[in-house]
Structure formats: C-alpha cells, structure tokens
Design a protein around this nucleic acid. Sequence first.
DNA 1: CGGTTTACTTGACGTGCATCAAGCCCGGTA
DNA 2: TACCGGGCTTGATGCACGTCAAGTAAACCG
Lengths: 227, 227
Amino acid sequence: MRTTDLPLIRRSRLFAQVAEPDLAAMLTACFVQTLPEGAVLCRQGEKAEFLHVVLSGRVGLFGEAARDEALVEFFGPGDAFIVPAVVLDAPYLLTARLLGEGRILMWPAPAFRAQVRATGPLAYGAVLLLSGYWRTLVGQIKDLKLLSAIERLSAFLLALAPRDTGPVTVTLPGGRRLMAGRLGVTPQSLSRAFAALRPLGVSGGGRQVVIADPARLREFAGARALK
Amino acid sequence: MRTTDLPLIRRSRLFAQVAEPDLAAMLTACFVQTLPEGAVLCRQGEKAEFLHVVLSGRVGLFGEAARDEALVEFFGPGDAFIVPAVVLDAPYLLTARLLGEGRILMWPAPAFRAQVRATGPLAYGAVLLLSGYWRTLVGQIKDLKLLSAIERLSAFLLALAPRDTGPVTVTLPGGRRLMAGRLGVTPQSLSRAFAALRPLGVSGGGRQVVIADPARLREFAGARALK
DNA sequence: CGGTTTACTTGACGTGCATCAAGCCCGGTA
DNA sequence: TACCGGGCTTGATGCACGTCAAGTAAACCG
C-alpha cells in the first residue's frame, strides 16, 4: 500500500467515522492493487471473496444473461462493492469490470464481515454508503418503469450537470455502448435518442456532451415526466 | 405499544444484534400505530420525519410521476423503510401505502439517526437490512433490462415457490394491478403474460396461483433467460 | 333480487424500441 | 498514401408491449 492511498481511503464514506487507530488496524488485513482496463474484479454467481473499494478509476457493474449483458451502475472512487454480497456471504449478483486503469483496495471477505459486526463506526459508514446506493437504484427503477428512453437520457444528462447554470459540457461516465446499457436501451436507440435531443440543444460526440440550455432540457424532461 | 409487539420487533433483522436493555431504551422514543388499508406512511418528495418498521401487514412502495405511478417493491413484516432517506436526511424518493390493515412502529427520524450512529449493533442490523434490499433492487433492474415481460413473470413466480417441489400454490403479494406495477408492465399485459404461461401449467385467479410443474417453468424461464 | 362497482380478461390497433444491415468517421498501421 | 478495424450513426423492418375499448365475472348493496 502506498502512502498516497491513505487519503483516498479516508475519503470514502465507508471510513468517514472510523477513528485513526482502528482504521490502521483494519487495513493490516488488506492490500491494494493497480489493475488494467477490463480487469474483472468479481464475477456474477461466484461466492464473495473480497470487498473492493475503488481508490481511483471507474468500475462498471454488469448483469449477465448469456448472450446479453446490461450495465447496472457505474462506480467510482470511494465506492465500495459489493458490500451486500460480502456481509450476507452470498453469491455476487453482478460482474464488476474496470473501465480504465484503477487502484483497488482488496479486503478479504471474512475479515470485513468480522470488522463490520464489531466496529460500530464502520457499520455506520456502510449504512451511509448503502443508503446512497439504495437511492440511486430506486431512482433507476423509477426511470425504467415510468420514463421513455429519451426521457431517461435527459434525466441522466441533467443529473450530471450542476443546477442553475448556462451552457455546460458534461462528460459521460462511459462510452456510448455503456451508456446504452445503463439506460436500458440498445446503442442504436441511444444514438437516436441523442439525435432527438439535438433540436433541444444537446450536442457533442464521444464522452463529451454539450447542453446548450439546461433549463430548457429540464423543462422538456419535466413536462414529459410529470404529465 | 402492546406487549405482543415486542416479539414482532425482535424479529426484524434491524434489531437482531441489539442487546435487550439497549432495545428497551431505544423504543422509548417510538410508538406503534394500527393503520387501515390505503394509509399513506410517507409521500415522495417530503422530508423524512419517521422511520417506519412494519410489524404486521404489507406495504407498497410507489414511485410517482403525475398521471402515472409504479410499484417499486412490496414490503412486509420486519422490513424498515425508509432507512436511506432517514439516515441521509433526504427527501423520500417513494410513497409508501399500506396494502391492508397493518401495525407500524414509528421512530422519529432525529432519534433514529442519533441511535444508528451511536449504537454499533443497530448500525449492523441496518447494514444487513440494506444489503438485502440492494440485492432485490439489483435483481429487479437486471430483470427489467434483460428479460421480457413473460420471463419476468416466470422469474417472480418461481421466486415465490420453494425449490424442488411438485405442484405448488403461491400467493401473490398483491392484486394483479400491483403485480403489473412491480413487473413493469400494464395490467393488460400482465393478463396476457399469465395467459401465455397457462400452457406451461400456470393457472389460478386472484392472488392464488397454481404452478403445476415448477421444474418445467424454471426450464422455460432459464432457457429464455440464458440464451 | 337487480343494479352498481371493482377487478380482471380479451380483442383490435398503434407505437417505441429492438433487430438487421449498411454506411460513416476516425485513429492506427504499414 | 492506402488499408483496415472499432465505435457511432442511419435506414428499413418487425415485434413486444402500450393504448383504447368492450366484455365478463365476482363482490357489494340497495
């Protein structure tokens, strides 16, 4: 473990409440790895061996069904997965793949299970983290059930943009293919959705997207979502 | 609070690790209510005032979008909601409605926030609870993104049936209308999906559904889901 | 008992998105 | 420069599911 890792570790919500000496003791069981793009951290269906905490880089969580797979969520620095599989000692529901080079804290599952049961502040950190995830997942389910593909794209873009601004360029957490999976459509449909938003001032290629007038887009998305 | 409530409270995973005297102390801040069908426990968009723990009855969590609403999940005895909104002190993402008469433990949000931070075993219980919810939500997202309506219905029915059995009768957690919301289809489409499964031995009306041959249904669902 | 309500089913039709299949753009390589 | 390959877009077509509209059945109630 490098000395530069510690500040990254501290920044995760998981450890926010843990006292310094306790943290040091916990980390003796852990190690840190730098892994290349495409590395698979855990595979759907397997038993949980490690808790992973992202220190740098981005990770995609994928649900798999033979010939098909869907990105369920993007994770980034400070996120810990898969807490649920580890604490419940259950098989992973998802496959995690690095979307670019990244540094990952590896925490053996039995050690983490014991720590989270014994250390209140760590459990509290886990509660905060899991609470945030509950909310993003619920939001996604609502979007899938209530919104069209174009509306979901609008909502996703707006969530990336700061509120109350003029033109912004946001950077997507992944390429178009990954975005499509996250939004629950095919890449072709995503492309059409972008085309449909172009008249509303959404432009750009690759990972960079320019929103000429966030207020107008918000109004469009809101009008369709709320009617 | 009735004396009969205590065993119900103890049964929730939230309190599984909490020592008896601590539990008694916590509960002084709480009260219990019996509420009729249709009672709204919390409303999407409002600030969290209470943590609710279901002691008896069933609750539906709904996402709302003006003219439309979708059931996100069923909750039953032992479930606590909305932990995430309460600990993060954020607005509810969902509206909770009783699906039948039920008894609900009401826990003022500030008191719960303080307790979960101070009491390790309570935080640990919350981690267990939230971990389970993460998994059901992730499962639902995978289903929505990867499976057709018929496949989702099959998977849902099979999840209600014990493994490795002959004919079983399962009872749905809600009427057809609610089931449709949970599966992300309209009631009409759900009706057609049931019709499509009839040749595979799925029959029954109302809340009771008979699965003549779970193995066959599982094979059907698996074949489509895994190819 | 008939009338109303509510829940579910069935049919006809339209549409959003998937699918299949080119075509385009751009960066890498010889 | 010409060649290639992968990511993105565009077009044509089809299907799954939504929508609109009856129709049926059981529950409730005068």
